[in-house]
Design a protein around this nucleic acid. Sequence first.
DNA 1: ATGCCTTAAAGGTTAAGA
Length: 260
Amino acid sequence: MKIASWNINGIKARHDVLIEWLRQAEPDIVGLQEIKSIDENFPREEIEDLGYNVETHGQKGFNGVAILSRLPFDEVNRGLPGNDEDEQARFIEGVFTVGERALRFVSLYLPNGNPTDDPRKFDYKLAWMDRLHTWAKIRLDLEEALILAGDYNVIPQGEDCWDPTVWESDALFRQETRSRFEALKSLGFSEALRSCTDERAYTFWDYQAGAWPKNHGIRIDHLLLSPEAAPMLLGCAVDSYVRDWEKPSDHVPIWASIGV
DNA sequence: ATGCCTTAAAGGTTAAGA
Protein backbone atom coordinates (compact mmCIF):
# COMPACT_ATOMS: atom_id res chain seq x y z
CA MET A 1 0.00 0.00 0.00
CA LYS A 2 0.98 3.60 -0.56
CA ILE A 3 1.02 6.24 2.18
CA ALA A 4 1.73 9.93 1.62
CA SER A 5 2.05 13.39 3.14
CA TRP A 6 1.32 16.71 1.45
CA ASN A 7 1.07 20.29 2.65
CA ILE A 8 -1.53 21.56 0.17
CA ASN A 9 -1.55 25.24 1.27
CA GLY A 10 -5.32 25.69 1.26
CA ILE A 11 -7.87 22.99 0.32
CA LYS A 12 -10.16 25.43 -1.52
CA ALA A 13 -7.37 26.69 -3.77
CA ARG A 14 -5.90 23.19 -4.20
CA HIS A 15 -9.03 21.07 -4.61
CA ASP A 16 -8.65 20.32 -8.34
CA VAL A 17 -4.90 19.69 -8.07
CA LEU A 18 -5.50 17.34 -5.13
CA ILE A 19 -8.18 15.39 -7.04
CA GLU A 20 -5.89 15.04 -10.06
CA TRP A 21 -2.97 13.85 -7.93
CA LEU A 22 -5.19 11.34 -6.07
CA ARG A 23 -6.32 9.96 -9.46
CA GLN A 24 -2.77 9.62 -10.75
CA ALA A 25 -0.88 8.57 -7.62
CA GLU A 26 -3.62 6.40 -6.09
CA PRO A 27 -2.37 6.59 -2.50
CA ASP A 28 -4.14 4.51 0.17
CA ILE A 29 -3.57 6.90 3.07
CA VAL A 30 -2.73 10.61 2.78
CA GLY A 31 -1.90 13.13 5.50
CA LEU A 32 -2.73 16.69 4.45
CA GLN A 33 -1.47 19.85 6.13
CA GLU A 34 -2.49 23.52 5.92
CA ILE A 35 -6.03 22.80 4.77
CA LYS A 36 -6.85 26.36 5.96
CA SER A 37 -10.48 25.42 6.42
CA ILE A 38 -12.94 24.65 9.17
CA ASP A 39 -14.22 21.06 9.20
CA GLU A 40 -17.70 22.01 7.93
CA ASN A 41 -16.30 23.70 4.81
CA PHE A 42 -13.85 20.96 3.79
CA PRO A 43 -14.88 19.89 0.26
CA ARG A 44 -15.11 16.16 0.91
CA GLU A 45 -17.56 15.04 -1.78
CA GLU A 46 -15.28 14.43 -4.77
CA ILE A 47 -12.63 12.96 -2.49
CA GLU A 48 -15.15 10.52 -1.04
CA ASP A 49 -16.30 9.69 -4.58
CA LEU A 50 -12.74 8.51 -5.25
CA GLY A 51 -13.15 6.02 -2.41
CA TYR A 52 -11.59 7.87 0.51
CA ASN A 53 -12.77 8.22 4.08
CA VAL A 54 -12.07 11.77 5.24
CA GLU A 55 -11.25 12.98 8.76
CA THR A 56 -10.26 16.58 9.38
CA HIS A 57 -9.00 18.74 12.21
CA GLY A 58 -9.62 22.15 10.80
CA GLN A 59 -9.34 25.77 11.88
CA LYS A 60 -10.53 29.07 10.47
CA GLY A 61 -8.13 30.72 8.06
CA PHE A 62 -4.88 28.86 8.63
CA ASN A 63 -3.29 25.62 9.85
CA GLY A 64 -5.57 22.56 9.79
CA VAL A 65 -4.72 18.92 9.02
CA ALA A 66 -6.58 15.94 7.57
CA ILE A 67 -6.27 12.25 6.80
CA LEU A 68 -7.73 10.64 3.67
CA SER A 69 -7.87 6.85 3.72
CA ARG A 70 -9.22 4.04 1.59
CA LEU A 71 -9.22 1.93 4.77
CA PRO A 72 -11.94 2.63 7.34
CA PHE A 73 -10.85 4.48 10.49
CA ASP A 74 -10.93 2.36 13.65
CA GLU A 75 -10.11 5.43 15.75
CA VAL A 76 -9.44 9.15 15.25
CA ASN A 77 -7.72 11.54 17.69
CA ARG A 78 -7.42 15.29 17.16
CA GLY A 79 -4.83 17.60 18.69
CA LEU A 80 -1.39 16.97 20.17
CA PRO A 81 -1.69 16.30 23.91
CA GLY A 82 0.35 18.23 26.45
CA ASN A 83 -1.08 21.76 26.40
CA ASP A 84 -4.81 22.44 26.84
CA GLU A 85 -4.24 26.13 25.99
CA ASP A 86 -3.01 25.32 22.47
CA GLU A 87 -5.78 26.23 20.00
CA GLN A 88 -3.83 25.54 16.81
CA ALA A 89 -5.01 22.59 14.67
CA ARG A 90 -1.77 20.84 13.75
CA PHE A 91 -2.22 17.17 14.61
CA ILE A 92 -4.58 14.32 13.72
CA GLU A 93 -4.09 10.60 14.35
CA GLY A 94 -5.91 7.72 12.67
CA VAL A 95 -5.76 4.02 13.47
CA PHE A 96 -6.41 1.35 10.82
CA THR A 97 -6.40 -2.42 10.63
CA VAL A 98 -4.03 -3.88 8.06
CA GLY A 99 -4.27 -7.66 7.95
CA GLU A 100 -4.40 -8.56 11.61
CA ARG A 101 -2.31 -5.62 12.77
CA ALA A 102 -2.89 -2.01 13.73
CA LEU A 103 -1.44 0.75 11.58
CA ARG A 104 -1.31 4.09 13.37
CA PHE A 105 -0.89 7.14 11.10
CA VAL A 106 -0.40 10.78 12.07
CA SER A 107 -0.69 13.90 9.92
CA LEU A 108 1.20 16.71 11.64
CA TYR A 109 1.95 20.34 10.81
CA LEU A 110 4.84 21.41 13.00
CA PRO A 111 5.02 25.17 13.70
CA ASN A 112 7.29 27.22 11.46
CA GLY A 113 8.94 29.09 14.34
CA ASN A 114 9.95 32.34 12.63
CA PRO A 115 10.85 34.92 13.65
CA THR A 116 13.20 33.30 16.16
CA ASP A 117 13.21 36.35 18.46
CA ASP A 118 9.43 36.03 18.98
CA PRO A 119 8.65 33.59 21.82
CA ARG A 120 5.12 33.15 20.46
CA LYS A 121 6.79 31.66 17.38
CA PHE A 122 10.16 30.03 18.10
CA ASP A 123 9.53 29.03 21.72
CA TYR A 124 6.13 27.71 20.68
CA LYS A 125 7.79 25.60 17.98
CA LEU A 126 10.36 24.14 20.36
CA ALA A 127 7.72 23.45 23.01
CA TRP A 128 5.54 21.76 20.35
CA MET A 129 8.50 19.54 19.40
CA ASP A 130 9.02 18.65 23.06
CA ARG A 131 5.33 17.72 23.33
CA LEU A 132 5.62 15.59 20.17
CA HIS A 133 8.65 13.85 21.68
CA THR A 134 6.77 13.05 24.88
CA TRP A 135 3.72 11.81 22.95
CA ALA A 136 5.83 9.69 20.57
CA LYS A 137 7.68 8.01 23.42
CA ILE A 138 4.37 6.84 24.91
CA ARG A 139 3.06 5.66 21.53
CA LEU A 140 6.23 3.66 20.82
CA ASP A 141 5.49 1.59 23.94
CA LEU A 142 2.49 0.18 22.04
CA GLU A 143 4.98 -1.49 19.65
CA GLU A 144 2.70 -0.87 16.66
CA ALA A 145 3.42 0.08 13.09
CA LEU A 146 3.37 3.87 13.53
CA ILE A 147 3.96 6.45 10.81
CA LEU A 148 4.41 10.15 11.61
CA ALA A 149 3.79 11.97 8.35
CA GLY A 150 3.88 15.69 7.93
CA ASP A 151 5.31 19.10 7.33
CA TYR A 152 7.91 19.19 10.10
CA ASN A 153 9.31 22.62 9.17
CA VAL A 154 12.71 21.07 9.90
CA ILE A 155 15.69 21.01 7.52
CA PRO A 156 17.55 18.02 8.99
CA GLN A 157 20.97 18.51 7.32
CA GLY A 158 22.88 21.05 5.25
CA GLU A 159 22.36 18.96 2.12
CA ASP A 160 18.59 19.29 2.60
CA CYS A 161 18.62 22.90 1.37
CA TRP A 162 20.05 24.62 -1.67
CA ASP A 163 22.23 27.00 0.36
CA PRO A 164 22.80 26.32 4.08
CA THR A 165 24.28 29.79 4.65
CA VAL A 166 20.91 31.35 3.75
CA TRP A 167 19.11 29.15 6.29
CA GLU A 168 21.67 29.13 9.09
CA SER A 169 19.78 31.41 11.48
CA ASP A 170 16.30 30.35 10.34
CA ALA A 171 13.93 28.53 12.71
CA LEU A 172 13.80 25.59 10.24
CA PHE A 173 17.54 25.02 10.48
CA ARG A 174 18.53 26.36 13.92
CA GLN A 175 20.45 23.91 16.10
CA GLU A 176 17.66 23.87 18.72
CA THR A 177 15.25 22.68 16.02
CA ARG A 178 17.54 20.10 14.40
CA SER A 179 18.66 18.61 17.71
CA ARG A 180 15.02 18.10 18.72
CA PHE A 181 14.31 16.37 15.40
CA GLU A 182 17.36 14.16 15.98
CA ALA A 183 16.19 13.40 19.51
CA LEU A 184 12.77 12.39 18.18
CA LYS A 185 14.37 10.01 15.68
CA SER A 186 16.64 8.64 18.42
CA LEU A 187 13.55 7.25 20.14
CA GLY A 188 13.56 4.66 17.35
CA PHE A 189 12.13 6.32 14.24
CA SER A 190 13.71 6.11 10.82
CA GLU A 191 13.18 8.56 7.97
CA ALA A 192 11.53 6.75 5.05
CA LEU A 193 13.34 8.74 2.36
CA ARG A 194 16.78 8.44 3.93
CA SER A 195 16.25 4.68 4.37
CA CYS A 196 15.91 4.49 0.57
CA THR A 197 18.37 7.05 -0.78
CA ASP A 198 21.09 9.54 0.12
CA GLU A 199 20.30 11.59 -2.96
CA ARG A 200 19.44 15.26 -2.61
CA ALA A 201 15.69 15.84 -2.60
CA TYR A 202 13.48 18.82 -1.79
CA THR A 203 9.80 18.99 -0.85
CA PHE A 204 9.27 22.79 -0.79
CA TRP A 205 10.08 25.58 -3.19
CA ASP A 206 9.09 29.17 -2.36
CA TYR A 207 6.62 30.88 -4.70
CA GLN A 208 8.96 33.88 -4.82
CA ALA A 209 12.16 34.75 -6.63
CA GLY A 210 11.91 31.86 -9.09
CA ALA A 211 12.78 29.30 -6.43
CA TRP A 212 11.27 26.38 -8.40
CA PRO A 213 12.97 26.99 -11.79
CA LYS A 214 16.25 27.65 -9.96
CA ASN A 215 15.68 24.53 -7.81
CA HIS A 216 16.15 26.58 -4.66
CA GLY A 217 14.27 24.09 -2.48
CA ILE A 218 14.35 22.66 1.00
CA ARG A 219 13.44 19.23 2.40
CA ILE A 220 11.05 19.75 5.30
CA ASP A 221 8.28 17.17 4.76
CA HIS A 222 9.12 13.82 6.30
CA LEU A 223 7.76 10.32 6.93
CA LEU A 224 9.00 8.86 10.21
CA LEU A 225 8.59 5.11 10.76
CA SER A 226 8.49 3.25 14.07
CA PRO A 227 10.68 0.13 14.48
CA GLU A 228 7.63 -2.00 13.67
CA ALA A 229 6.84 -0.01 10.51
CA ALA A 230 10.43 0.30 9.22
CA PRO A 231 10.77 -3.32 7.98
CA MET A 232 7.57 -2.85 5.92
CA LEU A 233 9.17 -0.08 3.84
CA LEU A 234 9.51 -0.95 0.13
CA GLY A 235 10.30 2.47 -1.32
CA CYS A 236 9.98 6.21 -0.87
CA ALA A 237 9.87 9.13 -3.29
CA VAL A 238 8.92 12.77 -3.72
CA ASP A 239 6.38 13.73 -6.42
CA SER A 240 8.21 16.91 -7.36
CA TYR A 241 6.54 17.00 -10.82
CA VAL A 242 3.38 18.29 -9.12
CA ARG A 243 5.20 21.61 -8.48
CA ASP A 244 4.98 22.23 -12.26
CA TRP A 245 1.18 21.98 -12.40
CA GLU A 246 -1.21 24.94 -12.67
CA LYS A 247 -1.83 26.60 -9.31
CA PRO A 248 0.54 24.34 -7.35
CA SER A 249 1.11 24.24 -3.61
CA ASP A 250 4.58 25.39 -2.59
CA HIS A 251 5.04 21.88 -1.12
CA VAL A 252 4.90 18.60 -3.08
CA PRO A 253 3.77 15.13 -1.92
CA ILE A 254 6.18 12.66 -0.35
CA TRP A 255 5.09 9.03 -0.33
CA ALA A 256 6.22 5.59 0.75
CA SER A 257 5.33 2.13 -0.41
CA ILE A 258 4.59 -0.22 2.49
CA GLY A 259 4.43 -4.00 2.21
CA VAL A 260 1.59 -5.54 4.19
C1' DA B 1 16.27 39.67 0.69
C1' DT B 2 13.23 42.91 5.85
C1' DG B 3 8.03 37.51 2.08
C1' DC B 4 10.33 38.96 -4.13
C1' DC B 5 4.15 35.38 -3.98
C1' DT B 6 0.00 33.00 -2.42
C1' DT B 7 -3.91 31.99 0.56
C1' DA B 8 -7.86 33.09 3.38
C1' DA B 9 -10.95 36.29 5.51
C1' DA B 10 -11.87 40.49 5.92
C1' DG B 11 -13.93 44.37 4.04
C1' DG B 12 -11.95 48.68 0.42
C1' DT B 13 -6.50 45.65 3.44
C1' DT B 14 -4.15 42.53 6.63
C1' DA B 15 -2.18 38.35 8.76
C1' DA B 16 0.28 34.31 7.93
C1' DG B 17 3.43 31.50 5.76
C1' DA B 18 9.11 29.57 5.31
